[in-house]
Design a protein around this nucleic acid. Structure first.
Length: 654
RNA sequence: GCGCCCGUAGCUCAGGUGGAUAGAGCGGCGGUUUCCUAAACCGCAGGCCGCAGGUUCGAAUCCUGCCGGGCGCACCA
């Protein structure tokens, strides 16, 4: 189910029955209580962090240096005092003072084991619900319905989906909204294409594909002059400067047949060809202008309520949506609502009127605009020709969301190039009176190809999302075939689908959102390193242990067994399992899924070390065997849940 | 010109609110398989954290100025 139209009443919040244990928060709480007199307990506690090195223990409190500086006291003496006062029972003994005034905390093995024991029967693996649950609207994906989704939609869709899952897991009420581009200029292009270029047979055979090819056709006509200009390159610039001779020479060089100058025997031949190209450009420019204007008029007519265009809109929309639905289904992405631009259209006039009556909007160069302090360009809410644009729609959307859900937080998962737009939008929305929600532009960088330019096909076209998914799966399939010939055809296909999707999503999520990232198939499907595949593999290995031992993990999940952390690899693994709540909480508060991927990679790594060093089924005693099985099962559950929060599935075998 | 983002190992990237000797993967070199998935593990080499100042007990992190790159700057979204 695409879930485009799930009623709001079905928006779920997480059940609240669970045990909770966020070690970092617990330690901070204890240190806050032991904060030196005159210091701010919250700041002091915030300086408690996981240790930078295991030799400094598991956690460290770094607050004493800062407090000592402010008070002009001796930091080590202060640390001594805090160490004597802080009560870490039963988590740890008195912290150790080190360096200029660090307090190093080493958690007790017995306590770690006891918490791990309780986690076995805890469905959420210790994940605490937010103390103050918030209503969060996440605006993501938001494709234009008129054209097929492409690589540019990957990041918004994948990051937005993951943030929604993370915030939901933290106990917030999350509303996933797909703000579809279903009312803009792209639709005018389809309407123009339909009226002038359509092929009824092709439409009857496959409406979705014909509509999208109509769109591409119109777009290519509009974009043709740009491509020609690019081909002519510098020659065109020279011609425009009146340097005809140099222009011809440049043209000759750029087309691969360099000539020496105007006296070259081939000069006149190339001059003719150059002029032909220039004429082509002029023709294309005229055609493009005509098509562009005609398409724009179709859009205007649609907005004005022209019956024919409205009827066509109604007719095409289901096909457009079903095309999107296929992609979302495959990605495993759903929405709670999908209120596109068309939904807000009836509200736009009132938005502008309201802005005007409050004195926010003014006239400028024929348009109705709102000026924002510190920004040169105004926020245009009504164009000179009377039409509204996305600024108006975005404001109407905020008003609607506030009235409908009263959100505490609205996230826009949109690429970084729109930073200025959102800065102005948030400013205007606040001055308009919608001050309650916290607004965040969750920005992300561009996906680049190996040439460090925006990712394109070899032919220079934008990469379609479907073909991207197909290739991810095909490449995964190749790896599966090579490594797991023992699996039957159907299972290999299923594994390839899950591994391929996982690789694609994880590659994106594991990057810091803000930076551009270089798309690299080999890296994302690597079985080693920070990849989904590596983590899925760790999971499959654990499942394999249980298969081999003919054991059901349910035993551990219903009653639990006694866990012992005797081997260093067991302790490291156990501690990492217990940090799950910290990782999810941090990823949620920072709105950064890569914090979660780092955590999962570290966990999978800790498991691999454990797997090498600690035989499970062949453990020296039955008690050790059970303990290790329990650790392995907890690991598997965290890995599966963690990947789940990234929108990534696991397989039992691979 | 103004604004936003980025600059960390050969390559691709992590680095909560300033903390101890800056991490990982790939690539390179060397090792590990009668044993639960070697799609794995372990070790070694590799750094002026773009440059220069400043703030301080302490800076990849904060401030200022440069250099280099990406993106955006009036009616497309």
């Amino acid at each position: 189910m695409l879930g485009l139209l799930i009623p709001r009443t079905q928006i779920k919040t997480r059940p609240s029955k669970h045990a909770t244990m966020n070690i970092l928060d617990a330690l901070r709480d204890r240190f806050a209580q032991a904060a030196p007199a005159g210091s701010d307990p919250v700041t002091f506690a915030a300086a408690v962090r996981p240790s930078t090195d295991t030799k400094f223990g598991d956690y460290q409190a770094n607050g004493c240096m800062g407090v000592a500086k402010a008070a002009g006291a001796n930091p080590r003496a202060l640390a001594q005092e805090v160490a004597g006062r802080v009560n870490l029972d039963p988590m740890a003994d008195t912290p150790e003072i080190a360096g200029p005034g660090f307090l190093n905390v080493r958690l007790k093995d017995a306590w770690l084991a006891s918490v791990l024991n309780s986690l076995q029967t805890d469905e959420t693996l210790g994940l605490p619900l937010a103390v103050a649950p918030q209503t969060v609207v996440i605006d993501f994906s938001s494709p234009n319905v008129a054209k097929p989704m492409h690589v540019g939609h990957v990041r918004s869709t994948v990051i937005g989906d993951s943030l929604a899952r993370i915030l939901h897991a933290l106990g917030h009420r999350v509303i996933k909204d797909n703000h579809l581009g279903d009312w803009g200029a792209q639709f005018g292009m389809i309407l123009y294409g339909w009226k002038n270029l359509r092929d009824d047979q092709a439409y009857a055979a496959d409406p979705v594909s014909h509509l999208s090819s109509l769109y591409r056709l119109v777009q290519s006509k509009i974009g043709a002059p740009g491509k020609l200009r690019e081909q002519l390159g510098d020659a065109l610039a020279l011609e425009k400067k009146g340097k005809h001779g140099e222009a011809v020479q440049k043209y000759a060089a750029e087309t691969g047949q360099p000539i020496s100058g105007a006296d070259d025997p081939r000069f006149s031949e190339l001059e003719t060809r150059f002029q032909t190209s220039l004429a082509e450009l002029t023709t294309a420019e005229a055609a493009a202008k005509q098509v562009e204007e005609a398409a724009r008029l179709e859009t205007v007519k649609l907005h004005a309520g022209d019956p024919e265009n409205r009827a066509l809109w109604d007719q095409f929309m289901p096909f457009c949506l079903s095309a999107l639905e296929g992609v979302y289904l495959r990605l495993g992405v759903t929405f709670d609502v999908a209120l596109g631009e068309s939904f807000y259209d009836p509200m736009l006039a009132d938005v502008v009127t309201d802005l005007e009556s409050r004195g926010l909007a003014t006239q400028s160069e024929g348009a109705t605009v709102v000026f924002t302090e510190g920004m040169k360009a105004p926020f245009i809410v009504r164009k000179r020709d009377g039409a509204y644009n996305y600024a108006t729609t975005d404001l109407a959307t905020i008003r609607y969301r506030v009235q409908e859900w009263n959100p505490d937080h609205i996230l826009y998962v949109v690429d970084h190039r729109q930073g200025d737009h959102f800065k102005a939008l948030f400013d205007v929305a606040g001055r308009w009176g919608y001050t309650h929600p916290r607004y965040d532009h969750v920005a992300f960088g561009t996906i680049l190809g190996n040439d460090r330019k925006p990712f394109k096909t070899r032919a220079g076209d934008t990469v379609g999302l479907e073909s991207l998914l197909d290739e991810a799966v095909a490449r995964a399939r190749k790896v599966v075939d090579e490594n797991s010939p023992e699996l039957d055809e159907a299972e290999r296909a299923q594994v390839a689908e899950i591994v391929g999707m996982g690789a694609l999503k994880y590659a994106d999520l594991s990057q810091n959102r803000l930076s551009d990232y270089v798309f690299d198939w080999d890296k994302m499907l690597a079985l080693n390193g920070n990849t989904a595949t590596y983590i899925q593999y760790a999971y499959a290995r654990i499942r394999s242990i249980f298969r081999k031992g003919e054991l059901a993990p349910e035993t551990f999940r219903t009653t639990g067994v006694s866990i012992a952390l005797d081997h260093p690899a067991e302790r490291a693994l156990g501690l990492q399992i217990l940090r799950w709540p910290e990782a999810v909480a941090l990823a949620g508060s920072e709105l950064k899924p890569n914090i979660l991927t780092d955590y999962l990679f570290t966990l999978a790594n800790a498991f691999s070390a454990f797997f090498e060093n600690c035989p499970v089924l062949k453990a020296e005693s039955e008690a050790t065997k059970l303990s290790r099985l329990a650790l392995a099962d907890l690991t598997a559950r965290v890995l599966k849940n963690g990947l789940g929060l990234l929108g990534i599935n696991t397989v039992e075998r691979m």
